[in-house]
Amino acid sequence: MLPLMQPVPLAEVSPSLRLRIIGAAGAGFPSPAQDWEEDAINLAELLRLNRAGSFVFRISGTSMIEAGINDHDVVVVDRDRNPMPGHIVIAVVDGGFVCRQLVARDGVPYLEARNARQNYAPTIAADPVEVWGVVRASVRDFLR
């Protein structure tokens, strides 16, 4: 478990940060959306990072690989979203942040890892566990 670090708010990301779109890249059958003419995107707008309740975390470890979140991925977390069963969340457990899926069994909330290859025990999502925020998006560096 990593020590509890202070998350960084993203509300002050520069609105001028724009990435140029070169073109559509097919990942299956051709799509009518390939005629899309937007030539630049604002990454902060795309990921909705300009909200006061949005934060980012870098993931450390492989406990969530079956949820599509890998070691070193960056996740966007909303503090102002109500966590519901099925959501991937950031929680404070034993003084450190963890990324887990919130599930409910017989009305009892649990935090569960999503890696069948490793034996992670579910954590009951009650005191002293705090669900800190809901993961909304992830970003992966494929060359890392």
Rank of each mutant, 00 (worst) to 15 (best):
N50M: 09
L19T: 10
A137Q: 13
I41T: 10
F57T: 06
D35S: 15
I124K: 15
R144K: 07
V103L: 08
V13D: 01
A126T: 14
W132H: 08
S14K: 07
M5K: 13
I22D: 11
A27M: 14
P7F: 10
A91N: 07
Q118T: 11
L17R: 07
E130C: 00
A126Q: 13
S16E: 09
P128Y: 00
V108Q: 01
T123S: 04
P15G: 01
R100S: 07
I90R: 00
L47R: 03
P128R: 06
G53F: 10
I59R: 06
I41P: 05
A137M: 12
V56N: 00
P9K: 04
Q34C: 12
P32S: 01
G68M: 06
I90D: 00
N42S: 15
A44E: 05
V139N: 05
V89Q: 05
I65E: 08
V76A: 04
P122D: 06
W36G: 11
V77K: 01
Q6R: 12
Y110F: 14
I22F: 08
V131K: 00
G61D: 06
I59T: 05
A27K: 14
D106S: 10
A25L: 12
E45G: 09
P122L: 02
F55I: 09
E45P: 04
A44G: 13
P32L: 02
V139S: 07
V75N: 00
A11K: 15
P9M: 03
R117G: 08
I22E: 12
E130W: 02
P3C: 08
V139D: 02
G68H: 04
L2D: 09
F29V: 15
L10I: 10
G53R: 04
A52G: 06
Y120D: 04
P3T: 12
L4V: 01
V75E: 01
I41D: 07
A137F: 10
R117V: 04
N82T: 15
F29M: 15
S138H: 08
S14H: 07
G107V: 07
